[in-house]
Each structure stands twice: as structure tokens, then as C-alpha cells.
């Protein structure tokens, strides 16, 4: 192979330029990525729970079950309230009878009486589906029956779900269950039928103390967004990488 001096110099310069190009210059965006840079959904539903305001009345659970036709006397529920009692010797007790549907009216916790003077701290924690940004339950669905909407809500297609329950196993928060009537996977929808009409979710509306709030994370002026961005908030099981979108004020390390 012959190579003149001129050719050699030309090729060296071209090679040098090619080598100096950063790898990222060759990264092609998928059509969806390119599209998302241009036009994004202006909505991302997020939830804010202030555990310091919750009194454990359970009216949210009652409202949720009746609004969403979850069988009332079956121990399954889309949202539930947990009670935590930490005693002065460092032990902690937790319960949630019937998901807290009838409120907490007795001091007994798990059949156990705890004298008030032994209580170091005690509080209630409402829980519901975290509508994760990376929902593990959606990833495992073998038939495409559960999915994320453009507004970030995870829904179940009742006509398509085969009831294999992979998603119920995959959810780190135990937020899913098997619907005893429809025989499909069931979960909190953030009351999708209500929020898409401009209403609040049934649990948010039912809460007398404002312990539950829902907002649009893409709206900077939304009071919920402002609180999440400026106050000290935490999420449950951050280490799972699911990016949960239910934020908590006053979360304790005993809560899991």
C-alpha cells in the first residue's frame, strides 16, 4: 500500500478531529426522548401527607372504600392508616386493624395495653400507593395490563389483567391487592376519575385536618409543590429506587 506525504497528513488531521469529538456527539435521541424535550405533559400528580396532623379517625379509609367500590367488610383497602406507639424502653408497636377503616378508638394495640406514662411517642401514618416514577409493579406485568399514565398515575386495566399477582409481590409498599369481586389486581388510582375532573381525591376531601393533600408537581405555584420543594419531606423506602411520589412530613425512622 502506498501513501504519499499529502495523504498521510490529510488522514492524520481527519483522525485527530474524529478522536477529539466527544462520544456524546454521537448519541442519538429516541423519538420519544426528542419529543419529550419539545412537548411534555403539564401534569404530574404528587401526594403530600402531614403525619403530625393525622389523628387516626380513619374517615379517609372509609371514604376511599365507598368511593372506589372496594368491598367494605373484606380486609383489603387501597389506602390505610397505621398507628405507631414507641415506648420509653425503645420498643415500638404498630397496628392497623381493618386498615384503620373504623378509626382508632382504643388504647390497646395488638391486644396489648400500654400505660400512657410509658409512651415516648405515638402517631399515625396514612399510607397509599406511591405512584412511583419507576413503578416496580408495572415492570413485572407480563401482559401490559398495568401502566403509567402521562400524569404519572399507575392504573390497572381490568379488562386485560390476568390476575397473576406478580405486581402484588413486586410492590415494596404492599399497596396492591387482589380485588375479590373483579378478580384482578387492584390499587389506589389517586381517584383518577375525580382528579381528572378537577376534584380532590376522596381521601383528601374526607380528611378534616388537612393531613392529606394532592397537587401538581409541574406547577410551581401549587401549594403542595411549594411545600415539597421548600420543607423537610421524606419518602418511604427511598433505597428501592422506585422514586415514590407520596411525600411525608414528620416521618419517623420506625415507619417502614
Amino acid at each position: 500500500m502506498s501513501c504519499s506525504r499529502r495523504d498521510f497528513l490529510r488522514r492524520s488531521i481527519k483522525g485527530g478531529i474524529a478522536a477529539s469529538l466527544p462520544l456524546s456527539a454521537f448519541k442519538f435521541l429516541s423519538p420519544a426522548q426528542a419529543k419529550s424535550l419539545v412537548r411534555e405533559s403539564g401534569l404530574r400528580w404528587v401526594f403530600l401527607v402531614d403525619t403530625t396532623k393525622c389523628v387516626g379517625c380513619g374517615l379517609c379509609v372509609k371514604a376511599c372504600k365507598l368511593e372506589n367500590e372496594v368491598p367494605y367488610d373484606v380486609p383489603v383497602t387501597r389506602t390505610w392508616v397505621e398507628r405507631y406507639v414507641v415506648t420509653k424502653d425503645g420498643k415500638f408497636h404498630a397496628d392497623s386493624p381493618m386498615g384503620g377503616r373504623d378509626g382508632f378508638t382504643e388504647q390497646k394495640i395488638d391486644e396489648q395495653e400500654i400505660p400512657p406514662e410509658e409512651i415516648a411517642k405515638a402517631f399515625f401514618v396514612p399510607k397509599l400507593c406511591n405512584q412511583c416514577e419507576n413503578p416496580a409493579c408495572v415492570q413485572v406485568c407480563p401482559v401490559g395490563a398495568t401502566f403509567q399514565t402521562p400524569e404519572g398515575v399507575v392504573l390497572v386495566d381490568r379488562t386485560w389483567c390476568i390476575g397473576c399477582a406478580y405486581c402484588i409481590m413486586a410492590c415494596p409498599y404492599g399497596a396492591r391487592f387482589f380485588h375479590p369481586v373483579y378478580r384482578v389486581a387492584e390499587k389506589c388510582t389517586f381517584c383518577y376519575h375525580r382528579i381528572s375532573k378537577g376534584m380532590k381525591t376522596a381521601c383528601v376531601q374526607a380528611c378534616p385536618f388537612g393531613a392529606r393533600q394532592i397537587g401538581n408537581f409541574k406547577d410551581e405555584n401549587d401549594p403542595v409543590t411549594k411545600t415539597i420543594l421548600t420543607q423537610r419531606v421524606a419518602v418511604l423506602k427511598d433505597e428501592y429506587g422506585t422514586k415514590p411520589q407520596v411525600y411525608y412530613i414528620g416521618l419517623d425512622s420506625n415507619v417502614r
Binding site: 396532623k53 393525622c54 389523628v55 387516626g56 388504647q107 400512657p116 415516648a120 411517642k121 405515638a122 402517631f123
Partner: peptide, 8 residues
């Protein structure tokens, strides 16, 4: 319910 740390 004598629960300190809760609004209750």
C-alpha cells in the same frame, strides 16, 4: 388517646 407527637 394520650399520643404525644400526634394532633390526636
Amino acid at each position: 388517646l394520650p399520643y404525644p407527637g400526634s394532633h390526636r
